[in-house]
Each structure stands twice: as structure tokens, then as C-alpha cells.
Design a protein around this nucleic acid. Structure first.
Length: 729
DNA sequence: GATCCTCGAGTTCC
DNA sequence: CTCGAGGATC
């Protein structure tokens, strides 16, 4: 700290000899410290007293301060981050971090095993399975004894069970660690799977995670994936310390780990006893991918990356279930929390062949332990009014600790659900956290039902506005008919308008909306933009600072996109995805409004993907309400803007809204080519003929579809006629 | 007409 | 996360 030394300018405070000596000493210290770290954390046998460790550590810090050119990202000193950072930078995962399919019952595991074997057999076709040979057993796999040998004859396919890597499913946080040339350069949270947060500074403080891989020949890039967690004993100690210091205690190890990783000041994280286990891989450049998952983890071990020892290679559903039972029995005695086990097809080539369904790999299954359940008393059932007027009964429970959190509320969804579960007010009920998050009432304990238990009665009038509650015969949900008369619905509409995926008005939460609506300061979203600092500051829990923050947030929210704006309007059945479709299709809001004003002609709306008759009707109704159009005008007048794309709708695709069905073999076009041609012009190509079909394009050997088209009087074209028609557009 | 899939809506706790 | 509804597909 005494002086600022300028690297590369030896003429300053330090001579060249100084620098050389310092570099040498720093290197010695790093090796020494790394050795002690290993002894302390991995062998659990410290070689020197803590104070001595601290002294060596301090010496290295001082050296690095005096000679900044000695600072390296893999130095032990980098484990304790410097100064707090502003938030966390986003990190886009080059290979997405997917979630796993879940199973709870033995049947789920058997079904998984069946899907996998079938999948491998199908893709394989006549080539036969290339699964690991029947001999060799568990241990032999990682060795990958030679190149994939000749496929077995197809005869024993059914008898060859698939080989799986089975491991624990830790209750922590998924993290991706990026090593470049063997040095840890970045650590990111899973986030939404596509984009996570950069928590490198915090991860560096976890002593079990090597800053440098233990190899002379590291891959150019290795992205290790695994779980950050906190051991129970560490968690207990941490909580004792927190309590003693008057700080808040954590409810469970997972939360403690999450809270620690989310510290902006990594010096705090450094004091938290976090651990890590690797279980997967993202990017790998400059090294050969091991042939099996188990071999990958073996490799990790040699690199000094912590891998949990409780893992096995097993065969078939029987092997999986055996592993599950053994782990289940050991669960309570494990030093950390797990919420289940994970099975992965062991061979990578088989994994690749199985591929993915939507967002989860087909080759893996998370087999979870039954959700923790607890008993408590159902104190009351109240109803809530949602944005669309949906009346939702909510269970008020005597607080009960279940699955790592205290639960006091749980949704009961609707009347049918209450009847199905047979719960009455006063009952002792079983509560669990579905998927370990959302509290759920499983059912009631009938022999503990008190004599004075009351059945829930759906109110006939809205508890908020008094309007009638109506339940359509074929719907499960009862709704308040009050619409925007109902304060509850207005509040929800405003919250929806302000939510992140809509206009993203930061700081406009439920408490504030509650006040604004109750005191009749605002009625519609447009009124929000008329708020001034003075008016806001008069509210509870709203000083000048928060008030001006909100005004600033409103200012920021004025600039948005058409898709967000349409979504924000809260049109029934129009969520984020449909709003995007509408924005893309119409380009300008006025085009959409204009279409709706032309009395109830829904064809243009139906041309939008994923808009069917019900959604079209709902959109049309919305824009036919003068009130709604008025609010939109007010919003625009208040300066809410978005870039409008060029009149996409001025030249709408000529076949928009038309449905075609292809049948038979066309003379020159393949099915896919014909489909692409039609779709490029906005047509929908459906699979079967119905009254909604506009044209059937028939080729040779057309069968029942052609017959049906004729029966329904749907025009039938051949390929030439279709080409002529497209050319004429 | 049945079934699969996606989207919307509602919800909890920290 | 879960359920139900709507749309698309077979």
C-alpha cells in the first residue's frame, strides 16, 4: 500500500533483483499454501497451525500487492476476492445447462429404462446395439478397452441391459466452472439454463475447487459442471456463528449455500464453508471426450476436481432401483442433503443417439425421494381473486416446517380439488412441498377430523367487489364477473402490467399497488404514468428516495417493445408467446386494433400461429371495448413507445389463415418441399382434412383424405394447380 | 375422436 | 411447479 509500483518500470521503488526474488518467493509460497490447503481440506489433517497458515498467506498477499505483475488468477490469494462488485454479470452458457426429467415411483424408472433401450434399438436399426459388451462388469467400463468393437448379433439385443452411471442428486446449486489452459477463468450459475450469472469471485473462495487443474497437459477449454453445496455440520456451525453475531440464521443448507454464493462481497463468501461435487461437462476443447460418463468423472478425480465417491455403474432398471434403495437407506447418515439420485446412460455415444426431448435429455433421469411430508391443522380456507377473476381457494395452515421451509399457505386450486382431497376446515392435513418448492395439501387425516369440522362453501359473491361469482359448467374455475369493477382484478392487472416480462417497472410491487388502488390514486395502467414524486411520497413506506426511484423506473419503462406491450395489456389467453406472435404478425399496434374493429372477422387473427377460435375471440373482444382502446391511447399519450416494424400487415402473407392438407405423392415435389412453399406464403399445413380445411393438394395414391375432401366439398388441387395458384398470388 | 404438446394462469417462500 | 385449456397432430 505504501507506493504504487508501476509494472515494467524497474527504475521505481523496486530493483530488478527485488522483482526476481519476489517472484521466486511468491512461487514458493503458492506451492506451500496449496499443499496446506490439500492437507486441511482433503486429507483433513492440517500440517501447520492456522495462525502459521495465515502468516504465509499474508506474506503472499503483501508480495502480490507490492508486485502487481505477480498476481495470477490461480493464486491462492485470489480465493478471497477484492472489493464488492455491482451485481453479477450475465454469462451465456455455450452449452445450455438443461434440467432433468423427474421420476418418483419404481414404474417411472422402469419406463425410463424401457424408453432408453427402445430408443437405442430403434436408432440402431439393423446395425445392432453397440452397448458395452455383456462381459467386463462394472469396473471395466471406464477403461474403454479398445475401440468400439463390432456390433453384436441382433439376437441378444433384448437380453443386454443398458449400462447406467448412477450418482447422488445433491441439494445445492448447479454451477459451471470454466477452465482455460487448466486455469479457472469463470464460474457461472445455471440461471435459466441459457444464461446464468458470473459468480467467479465467489467460487474462487471455495477451497475445494481447484484454481488450477492438476495436470501438465490441460485441455484448452474444460467446462466442469457440478453442484455447490454446504455440508450439514458446516451449516450448523455457520448458523451458530450467525446467531452469536446477531445475524440471520439460514433455514437449510441449500439456502445457506445459495445465499453465500449470491454475496456481492466475496470476502463474506470466503467465510462460508461451501463444498463442491462435479457431475457433468459442458464445453471441451483440446482433449478427447471420455467414452463414458464414469470415465469422465474418473478423469476429473485425476485433475483434482472433487467428485463424490458414492457413484456406481449399474445395469438395467434392476440395477438402478437397487442403487436407489441403498442410497435411500444411507440418506440420513450422509453428511449433506440429497433429494434423490440421478441416472445417466453411461456411454456417450448412446447418450448422443438418444438426444433430447424439448428441454431435457432423454438419457438421464432424476429419481427423487418422496417429498417430505408433515401434518398440520387447516385453520381456514379463504379465496383469492386473480387477474382474470379466477376465484382460488387457499388453505391457511398452522405454520409447519416441511422440506426446509415453514409453510403457512397452500393453494387448493379449485372446488373440485377440495372435494377430491376431501379436506374440511379444522382437519389435520398432510402437507408437502411439491417438487420441493410449492406447498401442497395432499389430503386430510380422516380419523382426526373434529366434530365441528366445516366444509368449504364457494361464495356466490366476490369477496372484494360483491359481483356475482360464476362457474361455467365445463370449466373447473369459478370467476368473479366484476371485471375491472373489481379492485382485486384491477390490482392484479396493474401488477401484470408492471411485471418483469411486461413493461418491467421496477419497484412497483404488490404493497404499493395495494395502496395506490385502495386510495383510488390510480385505476388503469395509464394512470401510473401520471404519478409524480410528491404524490408518491405521501404513501406509507415511501420516502422521497423510493418515490423518485419509481418515477425513474416508469421513465425507463416507457421504452418497450410491441410484444411486451401487448403482453402487458393482459388480454385473456394472450401470454408472452402469443403476444410475440401477434407483434410479429401485425408489426404495428394499430394494424391489430384495426383488424379487431372490423366487426368480428377473425380470419386475420386466426392466421397468427397458435391463435385458434377461442384466442381470436378473446383478442377481438378486448379491442372492441372502447375503454381498452382509450387506455392504450392514454398510454401512448403518456409517452409509452416502442419501435414499430414496417407494415408487415400492409402486405400480409397471401395465404395467411388458409389451411392446406397434403395427401398422396406429388409428381415433382416432396411433401416437405410442398409444405415449405405453402408455409412461406403464410399458409398452415395440417395433417387431416376437416371443415376448416381450405384446400387439399392431392397427388398419386391419395386415399381417405381425398375422399373426405370431396365429401366436405373442399377444393382439391393437383400439383400443377397448386403451382399455378401460388404463381398467381 | 383421441392424444400430445405448448402456453397461460395461479401460487409459495426467501 | 402444477393444472387446465387451447391448438396441433395423428
Amino acid at each position: 500500500m505504501s507506493q504504487t509500483s508501476v509494472p515494467g518500470q524497474g527504475a521505481n521503488a523496486h530493483t530488478a533483483t527485488d522483482a526476481t526474488a519476489a517472484a521466486q518467493r511468491a512461487a514458493e509460497l503458492r506451492i506451500e499454501l496449496a499443499r496446506h490447503n490439500r492437507a486441511y481440506y482433503e486429507d483433513d489433517a492440517p500440517l501447520i497451525p492456522d495462525a502459521e497458515y495465515d502468516r504465509l498467506f499474508g506474506e503472499l498477499v503483501a508480495l502480490e500487492n507490492d508486485f502487481p505483475e505477480l498476481q495470477r488468477p490461480d493464486s491462492p490469494t485470489q480465493r478471497v476476492g477484492g472489493k464488492p462488485v455491482e451485481g453479477f454479470a450475465p454469462v451465456v452458457h455455450r452449452v445450455p445447462m438443461l434440467s432433468l426429467n423427474n421420476g418418483f415411483a419404481d414404474e417411472d424408472v422402469e419406463a425410463f429404462d424401457r424408453r432408453v433401450s427402445d430408443g437405442l434399438r430403434d436408432v440402431n436399426g439393423v446395425n445392432g446395439a453397440s452397448g458395452a459388451g455383456s462381459a467386463g462388469g462394472v469396473g471395466g467400463v471406464g477403461g474403454a478397452g479398445g475401440v468400439n468393437t463390432t456390433p453384436n448379433s441382433t439376437g441378444d439385443l433384448f437380453g443386454t441391459p443398458v449400462e447406467y452411471a448412477a450418482e447422488l442428486k445433491f441439494d445445492g446449486l448447479a454451477i459451471a466452472l470454466r477452465y482455460e489452459q487448466g486455469v479457472l477463468v469463470q464460474a457461472a450459475t445455471r440461471g435459466d439454463g441459457t444464461t446464468g450469472e458470473d459468480v467467479t469471485a465467489n467460487i474462487r473462495t471455495i477451497k475445494k475447487i481447484p484454481l488450477k487443474l492438476d495436470t501438465d497437459n490441460p485441455p484448452d477449454v474444460l467446462e466442469v459442471r457440478g453442484e455447490v453445496l454446504m455440508f450439514r455440520a458446516d451449516f450448523d456451525k455457520l448458523n451458530q456463528a450467525q446467531e452469536a453475531a446477531g445475524e440471520k440464521v439460514f433455514v437449510n443448507p441449500r439456502n445457506a449455500a445459495a445465499g453465500s454464493l449470491r454475496q456481492l462481497d466475496s470476502r463474506i463468501t470466503a467465510k462460508r464453508p461451501l463444498s463442491f461435487f462435479a457431475y457433468g461437462i459442458g464445453e471441451l476443447i483440446g482433449a478427447t471426450m471420455p467414452e463414458t460418463h464414469s470415465a469422465l468423472l474418473d478423469w476429473y478425480v485425476t485433475l483434482g476436481i472433487p467428485v463424490n465417491e458414492r457413484r456406481e455403474v449399474v445395469k438395467g432398471a434392476d440395477g438402478l432401483l437397487k442403487f436407489y434403495r441403498e442410497v435411500g437407506e444411507a440418506r440420513a447418515s450422509l453428511p449433506y442433503d440429497i433429494d434423490g439420485v440421478v441416472y445417466k446412460v453411461n456411454r456417450r455415444d448412446e447418450q448422443d443417439r438418444l438426444g433430447f426431448v424439448s428441454r431435457a435429455p432423454r438419457f438421464a433421469l432424476a429419481h427423487k425421494f418422496p417429498a417430505q411430508e408433515a401434518l398440520t391443522t387447516l385453520l381456514d380456507i379463504e379465496v383469492q381473486v386473480g387477474r382474470t377473476g379466477a376465484i382460488t381457494p387457499v388453505a391457511r395452515l398452522a405454520p409447519v416446517f416441511v422440506g426446509g421451509a415453514t409453510v403457512t399457505n397452500a393453494t387448493l386450486h379449485n372446488e373440485d380439488e377440495i372435494r377430491r382431497k376431501d379436506v374440511m376446515i379444522g382437519d389435520t392435513v398432510i402437507v408437502r412441498r411439491a417438487g420441493d418448492v410449492i406447498p401442497e395439501v395432499v389430503g386430510s387425516v380422516l380419523d382426526r377430523r373434529p366434530a365441528d369440522a366445516r366444509a368449504f362453501v364457494m361464495p356466490t359473491a366476490c369477496p372484494v367487489c360483491g359481483s356475482a361469482i360464476e362457474k361455467l359448467p365445463d370449466e373447473a374455475i369459478a370467476r368473479c364477473t366484476g371485471g375491472l369493477i373489481c379492485a382485486a382484478q384491477r390490482k392484479q392487472a396493474l401488477l401484470h402490467f408492471a411485471q418483469r416480462r411486461a413493461l418491467d417497472i421496477e419497484g412497483l410491487g404488490d404493497k404499493l399497488v395495494e395502496q395506490l388502488v385502495d386510495q383510488q390514486i390510480i385505476r388503469t395502467p395509464a394512470d401510473l404514468f401520471k404519478l409524480g414524486v410528491a404524490k408518491l411520497a405521501a404513501l406509507d413506506r415511501m420516502a422521497d428516495k423510493s418515490a423518485s426511484n419509481l418515477v425513474a423506473a416508469l421513465e425507463k419503462a416507457r421504452h418497450t417493445t410491441l410484444a411486451r406491450f401487448i403482453f402487458a395489456l393482459g388480454i385473456r389467453h394472450v401470454g408472452e408467446a402469443t403476444a410475440k406472435d401477434l407483434a410479429r404478425h401485425f408489426g404495428k399496434l394499430d394494424n391489430l386494433i384495426a383488424v379487431c374493429k372490423r366487426d368480428s372477422d377473425l380470419t386475420e387473427l386466426l392466421a397468427v400461429p397458435d391463435v385458434g377460435p377461442i384466442v381470436a375471440e378473446s383478442i377481438n373482444n378486448f379491442f372492441c371495448e372502447d375503454h381498452n382502446v382509450e387506455v392504450i391511447e392514454q398510454l401512448r399519450a403518456a409517452g409509452v413507445t416502442w419501435p414499430e416494424s414496417e407494415p408487415a400487415a400492409a402486405a400480409p402473407l397471401p395465404l395467411a389463415g388458409k389451411t392446406f392438407v397434403l395427401t398422396g405423392t406429388l409428381p415433382t415435389l416432396s411433401r416437405d418441399e410442398a409444405k415449405a412453399m405453402l408455409e412461406a406464403l403464410g399458409a398452415k399445413v395440417a395433417g387431416s382434412v376437416s371443415a376448416k380445411t381450405d384446400y387439399v393438394v392431392a397427388g398419386a395414391e391419395a386415399g381417405s383424405k381425398l375422399a373426405k375432401a370431396e365429401a366436405l366439398g373442399v377444393p382439391v388441387l393437383d400439383e400443377d394447380a397448386m403451382r399455378a395458384m401460388l404463381a398467381a398470388l
